[in-house]
Design a protein around this nucleic acid. Sequence first.
RNA 1: GCUCCGGUGGUGUAGCCCGGCCAAUCAUACGGGACUCUCGAUCCCGUGACCCGGGUUCAAAUCCCGGCCGGAGCACCA
Length: 456
Amino acid sequence: MRFAPNPNGPPTLGSARGIIVNGEYARMYEGKYIIRFDDTDPRTKRPMLEAYEWYLQDIEWLGYKPDEVIYASKRIPIYYDYARKLIEMGKAYTCFCSQAEFKKFRDSGEECPHRNISVEDALEVWDRMLEGDYEEGEVVLRIKTDMKHKDPAIRDWVAFRIIKESHPLVGDKFVVYPTLDFESAIEDHLLGITHIIRGKDLIDSERRQRYIYEYFGWEYPITKHWGRVKIFEFGKLSTSSIRKDIERGKYQGWDDPRLPTLMAFRRRGFEPEAIRNFFISLGVGENDVSISLKNLYAENRKIVDAKANRYFFVWDPVKIEIVDLPEEREVELPLNPNTGGKRRLKGERVVYITRDDFKRLKGKVVRLKDFCNILLDEKAEFRGFELGDVKKGKNIIHWLPESEAVPGKVVGENEAEGFVERNSVRDVGKVVQFERFAFCRIESVGEKLTAVYTHP
RNA sequence: GCUCCGGUGGUGUAGCCCGGCCAAUCAUACGGGACUCUCGAUCCCGUGACCCGGGUUCAAAUCCCGGCCGGAGCACCA
């Protein structure tokens, strides 16, 4: 199995599908798993130097260990050799048609005048191409298929073109670059790929590449194509549009928690296991799916709910004073209902609660969870330490003592600012549940604690 | 327009190849109840689907034909 991305941006949730599905099959059948960077276009889909490493990191994060990592751009001479063989076999030719000119031939099903040049002439042109004697767009190498093929998309396709632009990885070493279809056709055979699973946008690739396989007498891998995935929560986000928005300052960077990049999900504290389960449940059907992130959230919640510690986070805080509190006492609360751990808070006279609760319950008797009952107002009246009947009204709210409230904020899909419980600073880097708010990953503690919103 | 592919509850998905065991699986969502000194967690219960029309057959989600709808490709992008 293989996963073959072009590292022209950071891996996204979409990339995860390719990583996971191929990785899982390789694991299931104890096959090899190869990562191949299809980075053969230094211009239109220009690779990002950092992205190579990003892919490798995220693949590892998702739980897969590639048996091999291949960089197509470093293996271009190999493709030249096969191109030469095809020319010698009369199965490829150098073509001087412009794109528009060739389109006419393709549409009408006629052969272009260059198609039948002699092998010797084609080889000479090819060598001069490699030497850099031609300009961009002047000449390309085409694979002979069938100009009468009922699908025009298959007719004599381009295998190599001239691009005079420095490549991020290999610099100015080459001026002639293979197209994806050619590079991938050769590599899949060389690497011994037996099964290809990828998006259906590449379905025509197979039909084109089969000609090469036939000419060389190779066996084409078994293929499977999945449909498009649309995630409700993310509109049409292309790498290039995100890049622009980052430059404009709309997003902080590639790991901005609002983005569908894997680094963003990692930053939000998602479990790789959840992402894996999410894509496995999607299957490899050929129909298009549009699915909500809620499904991913549900997967993640299953894992994270059991281990996340609980803390109070009072967003949009209101300060209240329990004027007649008979005594300040330390209270014990569950840290994690599953492990039975405990945490402590000081039950004191001055506490914070969220404005929503204040407005909603003002004038009523409410329970400060695990602490005491009060008649809610800015100057609240004490109504007892025992839970009693308040339970039935379900007016149990969270709170924070003034002395243990540290300023904090949550960023990401939902943003909020207020005070967080001091106890939570020990969970930096971990996902916690802010009670009655959401799961968040505590990212940093400084003057202010910053947490990234994970999901409800 | 040409070539190809697909259409199962709100959303995904299993079943379709090799017709009957499918009054259709599982998950999620939604509704109700229980539990809990948080909850969107947990536990029960429930709602809810084979695109339409023909045909073949004792029997069709499954096979055939037509229609409708959706998608992909038709680049010197990947």
